[in-house]
Design a binder for these strands. Structure first.
Length: 902
RNA sequence: GGGCGCAUAGUUUAGUGGUAAAACGCUGCAUUCACAUUGCAGAGUCCGCAGGUUCGAUCCCUGCUGCGCCCACCA
């Protein structure tokens, strides 16, 4: 009975970790359904799904280790444990990553079109999205991989749709035009929680507005954004402000615009700030929007979605960026002697949390989730203790925000994500639930040609597709696969008919050519590039002709003529194929005219909205006409949902809600959620009310808010700053167990960890110590009966050393268990380390070199391995395998050592 | 503007109403012994600053300073 022939003098994690992980996976012990022993109670953790764009950082490693410690202990304690892994599609973040990749290739998502872009993101996800899950495995995470979920899985999409429609039917999901946080780079709105703030050195400008009824007199307002004055609707003062009492109700002249605006009062105005008088710009400031609404002020949108000044801003600034406009306005005011003071004024600017671009508040039509009732139940769940935070002070962060939560802007104007599961009337934009369709109709623009690439006007020139164009056609075909298309009609020009045939081949449908859908006749422009035409006509002239409804390019068709011709063809098809699903393959110009007609768009808007190559547009026909305008064309709404709306469903959508309830019944609610503090409101709060709304119960009872790992000098770890530490590098250098040890060692309950790598090294040494202690015990223990772990071995004849070490072991078992149960992981580990090294190795083993008691040594060793297993699973499992215990199972499913009741 | 957390040896951190610890690092010694990824010994902290409570405070209270974080319609 001697195991030492296998035990090398040093522990080498590289020889152990992958092999042991494989054994665990093959054992089925990660899956609660295939665990040994009869297990009544369940213990569930749904991992906070990392973004598919992410790779493991120290925060993930800490969090995964915490969860693994809990799961492994509970598994050993006989619970039916499920740790459910998965990833988040991370809407804006992922879209941005893929957009960056496209930029490197010299293209944009708009060039690709929506379907092709989404296909690209899926490709990206398939390639990189699971990296982080593989990294979890390297750390030793005992997750049930058979239940891995992704927030864009088909079943998960179902859940999101169900949840949205539930709120919609309840009247809590509504559409409204509001001033929202708009990111001019991402081209989407953002919720209030998706902002970051940065202090910026700004200037506070004091501007005089002349009072109309009192020549020579002014009211002075202070602002950091003088450019927005072009959209001012009023000047506001506090109603209690004596200084302005007699001016309230009067009109002042808005400089530059020379527009009279009223002086009004509002309680929200701070008398102390600036001059106590504020310019009110309802379009570009949330507070001003409120004041504007209360006072029925007109809204002048002077900044557009790209951050450029609109025509309403007037000739001084139209078309220029807001920052440039600021300079122009300031110098104009100076020239007019109306700028009386400039003082430096540091203030916070809000930034997009995904790209860091300054937010431009914009009035915009968006979807909102009503929060009054949901906020109340979420608050209640925490206040009544159904959800408990550890440490409890984090509860305040939650309740503080929940208590004053505003309606959630939930729609995003990006492409990657869950689409809002509603349709709209193509003509009047009225939203409705998906109607029963009499027929589905699609318009597809042909794929790319070489002339497209050269930006050369093709008109009737018969140019074939290039490779990219054929690829686009195939992508489009794939996207149209399940739409049930019956008929394909195509323009008879090669680039369209070729596109149509590729799609037709995929769908098994013949193509009918129809000359109504030919591209616009370009006359003399045909064959010329945009660049050449600008030289001929000047840029301005070119644009004017290009977007003129009645003017034809010399010798060609006007847009009016194109519209007439193509709509004739379209209506003929409608007549002919009443109840058929039809796909029309055509061209940029013709499709724009069909869309203009069906969507009832203004020509100027329609003509500028060119579809990209291969893009398909759905214009289907509803059985039931629009209640609002009586028209029949409908199309799906294009906006997608805030990523966090789908994340909010995580604890139950991952368990099969709403359709598959087997796991849901068994594992919901989950036991504990462990996460970082920065997503308490963004995620935790939303899971709580979603759970209450859809499952009628909180999604977890305990919330662990773990520490944030900072650099040694307390700075944020950031990949871009190069201050980040890659856990994979640590695992490579020290081993996974040492890495876990080093992380947990520092998790002492503070809200920050100032990262110190030396503790990982200490972990490596400790692993070696454990290994060698085992080596020593196994080398010496000659008596097979020493390996019988059944029963109590304490008896009176034992030496004092034996008794002492056994007593200390009992103490350690008690304390380690209690610390883990209280989520004090660092304390638990310190306790174990102290006992094992100082008491067992340095004292007991050293003394046992004189007088041995193998049974005691084996007992302390085996129990220690069990206690250590949640912290250092690989090492302990490997050592366990080397101990010749009769009838043993793997350590991962061995019984957790409980303190003896004495 | 409001709130929260932290401040103890060179470093990362425990800890207690009666003038302090652990790990790593450092110094010295040991070593054919399970482990040099070791053992033993040792040096090193006026417990951020100023007040207060107390017989007595690093620990409780107040203020300040520094670092970090969160929230706010921060014109």
């Amino acid at each position: 009975m001697n195991g030492t022939e296998d035990l090398e003098p040093q522990y080498d994690p590289k020889k152990v970790e992958d092999r042991i992980y494989k054994l665990w996976e093959e054992s089925g012990f990660f899956n609660p359904d295939t665990l040994p022993r009869k297990r009544e109670k369940t213990y569930t953790i749904a991992v906070p799904p990392p973004n598919v764009t992410g790779s493991l950082h120290m925060g993930h490693a800490l969090n995964a280790t915490i969860q693994d410690i809990l799961i492994r202990k509970k598994r050993m304690e006989g619970y039916k444990t499920l740790w459910l892994p998965g990833t988040d599609h991370a809407g804006i973040a992922t879209q941005n990553v893929v957009e960056k990749e496209l930029k490197k290739q010299g293209t944009t998502r708009y060039d690709l079109g929506r379907q092709a872009f989404i296909a690209r993101v899926w490709e990206w996800k398939e390639k990189y999205g699971d990296i982080i899950l593989e990294q979890f495995k390297k750390l030793g995470s005992s997750m049930d991989w058979s239940r891995t979920r992704f927030t864009m899985d088909p079943e998960y999409q179902k859940a999101v749709e169900e949840a949205f429609l539930h709120y919609y039917r309840k009247g809590w999901m509504y559409r409204a035009e509001r001033v929202v946080n708009w990111c001019v780079r991402c081209q989407t709105s953002l919720s209030d929680l998706e902002l970051e703030y940065k202090e910026e050195k700004a200037m506070l400008y004091y501007i005089q507005y002349p009072i109309l009824s009192r020549p020579g007199e002014h009211i002075t307002v202070a602002t950091v954004r003088p450019e927005t004055m072009l959209g001012d609707s009023a000047v506001a003062v506090n109603p209690k402000d004596e200084r302005y009492r007699d001016i309230v109700g009067a009109e002042v002249l808005l400089p530059i615009q020379d527009r009279p605006i009223p002086v009004i009062t509002d309680e929200a105005i701070d008398k102390e700030f600036g001059t106590g008088a504020v310019k009110v710009t309802p379009a570009h400031d949330p507070l001003d929007a409120d004041i504007g609404a209360k006072n029925n002020l007109p809204v002048y949108k002077v900044i557009d979605e790209r951050g450029k000044m609109t025509a309403l801003a007037g000739p001084l600034c139209e078309g220029v960026k807001a920052s440039e406009c600021r300079e122009r306005v300031v110098s104009e005011l100076k020239a007019k002697n109306l700028l009386v003071k400039e003082e430096s004024y540091p203030h916070n600017v809000s930034l997009c949390y995904r790209c860091g671009t300054a937010i431009e508040p914009q009035p915009s039509m968006q979807w909102f989730l009503k929060m009054s009732e949901l906020g109340r139940v979420a608050l209640d769940a925490v206040n009544t203790g159904r959800v408990t935070f550890y440490p409890d002070r984090w509860k305040d962060v939650y309740t503080h925000w929940m208590g004053s939560v505003r309606d959630w802007n939930i729609s995003r104007q990006i492409w990657w994500g869950h689409r809002i599961p509603l349709w709209r009337c193509s003509t009047c934009d009225e939203a409705r639930e998906k109607p029963e369709l009499a027929a589905r109709w699609f318009l597809v623009r042909h794929g790319e040609t070489e002339w497209n690439k050269e930006m050369r006007y093709m008109g009737r020139e018969d140019i074939p597709l290039n490779d990219a164009g054929r690829e686009q056609a195939r992508t489009t075909a794939a996207a149209l696969k399940d739409t049930g298309i019956d008929i394909i009609v195509s323009s008879d020009l090669a680039r369209a008919s070729e596109t149509a045939r590729i799609i037709g081949r995929e769908l098994g449908i013949d193509v009918i050519e129809n000359e109504h859908f030919r591209e616009r006749h370009m006359g003399e422009w045909q064959g010329k590039t945009t660049h050449e035409l600008k030289e001929i006509h000047t840029e301005e002239g070119f644009t004017k002709i290009r977007f003129h409804y009645d003017e034809a390019y010399h010798g060609g068709e006007s847009w009016r003529e194109v519209e007439g011709r193509v709509m004739k063809g379209f209506q003929d098809l409608r007549q002919k194929y009443q109840n058929k699903n039809v796909l029309i393959v055509s061209h940029g110009g013709t499709i724009r005219m069909i869309v203009k007609n069906i969507r009832n768009l203004h020509f100027d808007v329609a003509v500028r909205n060119e579809p990209s190559n291969g893009q398909s547009i759905e214009l289907s026909i509803a059985r039931e006409q629009c209640k609002n305008c009586g028209n029949e064309y409908v199309e799906p709404i294009e906006d997608v949902l805030d990523t966090w709306f789908s994340s909010a469903l995580w604890p139950f959508a991952t368990l099969g809600w709403p359709e598959h309830i087997r796991d849901l019944k068994e594992f919901y609610p989950t036991s504990v959620l462990s996460t970082a503090r920065d997503i308490i409101n963004l995620w935790v709060a939303r899971m709580v009310y979603s759970g209450l709304e859809f499952m009628d119960g909180v999604p977890f009872s305990d919330v662990i808010i773990h520490a944030t790992i900072l650099t040694k000098d307390g700075k944020r770890m950031s990949k871009s700053l190069g201050t980040g530490i890659d856990p994979m590098t640590l695992i490579e250098k020290y081993g996974a167990d040492a890495t876990r040890f080093g992380i947990v060692w520092q998790a002492m309950g503070n809200q920050d960890i100032h990262w110190a790598e030396e503790h990982v090294n200490a972990g490596k040494k400790f692993a070696n110590k454990v290994w060698n202690a085992a080596r020593f015990v196994l080398m010496n223990a000659a008596d097979p009966s020493a390996f019988d772990l059944s029963g109590d071995i304490l008896h009176d004849a034992m030496s004092d050393d034996d008794k002492k070490v056994l007593a200390l072991l009992e103490e350690t078992k008690k304390n380690v268990g209690a610390h883990i149960d209280a989520y004090e992981f660092g304390h638990a580990l310190h306790e174990l380390y102290e006992f094992f090294w100082r008491e067992f190795c340095d004292v007991y083993i050293e003394r046992s070199k004189k007088a041995r008691n193998d049974a005691v040594a084996v007992r302390v060793l085996t129990e220690s391995l069990k206690l250590l297993h949640p912290f250092m699973p690989f090492l302990t499992e490997e050592v366990w395998a080397r101990i010749p215990l009769p009838g043993k199972s793997m350590l991962i499913v061995s019984e957790w050592p409980l303190p003896h009741a004495r």
